[in-house]
């Protein structure tokens, strides 16, 4: 696509938990500088996919290449070296609740990039400002702020080290539509400014349309459809149609009824 190199290449990715087969032989290419949204029903393995890529989970089989380098099975320093290229916003924000907000945001700079505390604080306050939090909030703790603000701090933490690849796991789920809109805009802006490759997980079509250039639909452990955002309404794919129109009847329902949502 446009002659751009592939940033993340997934081949035959398979992951089961006991008898539960979550990812089954999944293939996906993500090109450098593109922003892709992975959509799909709850419990279809979107978070599991992301956790495999960032090394929190290890796939049962298959290959994950980042910049052409095989990263499955990396651990310790080798994994940390790869992870310096990426930033992630967790579904539940996952802020460090023992640290004030500025240390959360500056954590990666101090811990993995050798930036001093004083400089990290300055950089963190600037990032907090970018996501709409003032300097006074820098010394507050995650427990003292709202869920929407926590997501924004999580976003600030993910972009603080200016990573090449950004992962966002349901950035707008569980927060009100107005704040969701704000966060979507922040994501688009951050990705543009950093020139990063971005993978956003969502089950909200509107949000996915706003954030991404490209959409991939996950269904029964595979990518059922992938294409440009503009083409999603005429995908000719029954699964995609059912999902974007929120219909109860269709090919998705059979597998969903057998699968408790997570």
């Amino acid at each position: 696509m446009n002659g751009r190199p592939v940033k993340i290449a997934l081949r035959g990715l398979t992951k089961s938990f006991g008898k539960k087969h979550v990812l089954r032989d999944l293939d996906l290419d993500i090109y450098e500088g593109e922003s892709i949204a992975v959509i799909g029903a709850s419990g279809t393995g979107k978070s599991v996919l992301l956790k495999n890529i960032v090394g929190i989970l290890t796939p049962d089989s298959g290959s994950i290449k980042i910049d052409g380098e095989e990263v499955t099975g990396l651990s310790g320093n080798a994994r940390d070296r790869v992870n310096r290229k990426l930033g992630m916003l967790f579904q539940g924000a996952a802020l460090f609740d023992s640290l004030p907000l500025w240390e959360n945001v500056g954590f990666g700079l101090m811990s993995a990039h050798g930036v001093s505390r004083a400089d990290a604080r300055i950089a963190a306050i600037e990032r907090l400002r970018q996501v709409g939090l003032d300097e006074d909030s820098a010394d507050r703790f995650p427990a003292d702020i709202s869920a929407g603000a926590q997501k924004r701090v999580g976003l600030a933490r993910a972009i603080a080290t200016e990573p090449e690849i950004l992962f966002f796991d349901e950035p707008t789920t569980g927060i009100d539509p107005i704040m969701g809109d704000v966060i979507d805009k922040l994501i688009v802006k951050s990705v543009k400014e950093l020139g990063a490759t971005a993978l956003t997980i969502s089950h909200d079509m509107d949000s996915a349309r706003r954030i991404a250039d490209k959409i991939a639909m996950i269904h029964e452990g595979k990518i059922a459809w992938v294409g440009d955002v503009a083409k999603i309404d005429n995908s000719g794919n029954e699964i995609v149609d059912q999902f974007i129109h929120g219909r109860v009847d269709g090919p998705m329902s059979a597998s969903l009824l057998g699968t408790p949502a997570a």
Binding site: K51, V54, G55, I56, R79, D80, R81, N83, R84, L86, G87, M88, F90, Q91, G92, A94, L95, F96, D97, F107, G108, S111, A112, R157, T161, F167
Partner: peptide, 11 residues
Amino acid sequence: EQIDALSTLAT
């Protein structure tokens, strides 16, 4: 997931 967050921050 704070422990997972640590490892994504290369720590």
